[in-house]
């Protein structure tokens, strides 16, 4: 099963290496990993996409929690959530094929961000299925390069993963 795990970490020396090392050292796989600062500069959030049976996912979550710099771990796939990926696609496009390609891009609500005589660059966001779909359709025209961000995800509803953090820090400081 595919799981998206949000990990709130202290923004400290070597924390990315600790997390990446945990996955490689224990034989877990990482499908994608994205790291960003949060509104609090001392704290970063990592979104990790991984695969494994329930037993492995449970161990992954426990092992992540065990790291001293980890503040909070959440399996986003357990709750109602929204996930997105950003892709930049460089597609072969001549004068003859350009109109067709542009209409495909419009259908997928993509954006053209660069154009040359023989190519164009599309910016597109969506979940994995949508991105795969447009890639499939554009393939026959010749895709020169695909760059994708990892998946990021957020839970629906009022609660924020980072909100919990602030409370946690507060109670520690008090």
């Amino acid at each position: 099963m595919r799981h998206i795990i949000s990990v709130l970490v202290e923004n400290k020396f070597g924390v990315l290496a600790r997390i990446a090392g945990l996955f490689s050292g224990r034989g877990y796989n990482i499908e994608s990993l994205s790291v960003n600062a949060t509104e609090n500069e001392d704290i970063s959030i990592m979104t990790i996409v991984t695969r494994g049976d329930d037993h492995i996912i449970e161990q992954i979550i426990k092992q992540l929690r065990k790291l001293v710099n980890t503040i909070k771990v959440r399996d986003v796939t357990q709750v109602d959530h929204i996930e997105r990926e950003l892709a930049l696609l460089k597609v072969h496009a001549t004068q003859r094929t350009r109109p067709d390609i542009l209409s495909i891009i419009e259908t997928f609500r993509g954006k053209v961000v660069d154009i040359t005589k023989e190519s164009l660059v599309v910016e597109i966001t969506g979940d994995q299925n949508k991105l795969n779909a447009i890639i499939n359709v554009l393939e026959p025209y010749g895709i020169i390069e695909i760059i994708k961000s990892g998946t990021i995800a957020i839970a629906r509803g009022n609660k924020s993963t980072t909100d919990f953090t602030k409370q946690d820090i507060k109670s520690q400081e008090e």
């Binding site: 970490v9 202290e10 790291l67 001293v68 710099n69 980890t70 503040i71 909070k72 953090t165 946690d168 820090i169 520690q172 400081e173």
Partner: peptide, 14 residues
Amino acid sequence: KNLCSTDIKLVGYN
């Protein structure tokens, strides 16, 4: 000037 302290700030360790 930051001499010995026992002040521990470990947000994620409890």
